[in-house]
């Protein structure tokens, strides 16, 4: 046990600071991906609820495809696709050889596009959970579509979306581990580095696993608090 704390501690040659920094990177990239996903998810939910059938089909295609393809492939596409574009741009300006795309950015975008497909379903369900009467009443008051969205739909849908978003967040957090394959030094990659240089792979990957569990515990509790707060004004049959 004390050998473990020497290895993972913060004193001397301990890996504590490296693992903590990597945990912060994991959180940052997961949050960024979740944020990008929220934008994609809202756009896709809006498209799937629109009266225009082309938009509905597009949204349907997006959610079905991205939810049916391994995330790892999407990450490869964004990383290598981004690098190819950047390399060609670089050649225009006289750069030589392969220019790698920024891994944080491509990772967050890849995760964002995937999680957007899941969030789209959450937002769609949340909007559908609104009672029709509210929207009719807003129309009767003469509210236009934007005012209606801002005052009536958004505040209530956001409330209904919280539990579903909590699930997607847990998914995003775990997915973020995959970005290690393109070299972003987040928790997983840091554990690999530590495992390689100390020949203690079990210790490092177990520690990484525990840190993921910790993040998911804390964020799960945060989502429960948020849900309880948001639902204060709602009467529920029970």
């Amino acid at each position: 046990m004390s050998a473990y704390f020497d290895l993972m501690g913060f004193a001397g040659t301990g890996w504590g600071f490296d693992m903590l920094r990597a945990t912060a990177v994991t959180l940052a990239v997961a949050l960024a991906g979740f944020g990008v996903g929220a934008i994609f998810g809202m756009l896709s939910a809006a498209a799937s609820l629109s009266p225009v059938s082309t938009l509905r089909h597009l949204a349907d295609g997006y959610t079905t495809t991205l939810r049916g393809i391994p995330d790892l492939l999407v990450i490869y596409l964004f990383y290598f696709g981004g690098s190819t574009v950047i390399t060609q741009l670089g050649h225009l300006f006289g750069a030589e050889g392969f220019v790698s795309a920024p891994v944080f950015l491509t990772g967050a975008l890849a995760i964002g596009v995937v999680s957007g497909a899941y969030q789209a379903e959450v937002f769609r369900g949340a909007v559908l959970a609104l009672s029709r009467g509210e929207i009719e009443a807003a129309k009767a008051y003469g509210m236009g579509p934007f005012l209606r969205f801002r005052r009536i739909i958004l505040p209530q849908a956001a409330r209904f979306a919280i539990p579903g978003l909590g699930n997607v967040w847990q998914l995003v957090l775990k997915e973020s581990a995959l970005i290690s394959v393109v070299g972003l030094v987040e928790l997983m990659r840091q554990a690999q580095i530590g495992a390689g240089s100390t020949r203690k792979p079990f210790t490092f990957f177990l520690t990484a696993g525990l840190l993921y569990l910790l993040i998911s515990l804390v964020s799960g509790a945060a989502f429960r608090v948020a849900e309880a707060r948001a639902m204060r004004g709602i009467r529920r049959a029970s």
Binding site: K174, L178, P201, T203, G209, L213
Partner: peptide, 22 residues
């Protein structure tokens, strides 16, 4: 709780790389 709360990649690496530590 443990297996749903950690990334599959961690589980895979613990089994493939980690177990060789013993």
């Amino acid at each position: 709780f443990v297996f749903r709360g950690t990334p599959l990649l961690v589980q895979l690496y613990i089994i493939y790389y980690g177990l060789s530590q013993f």
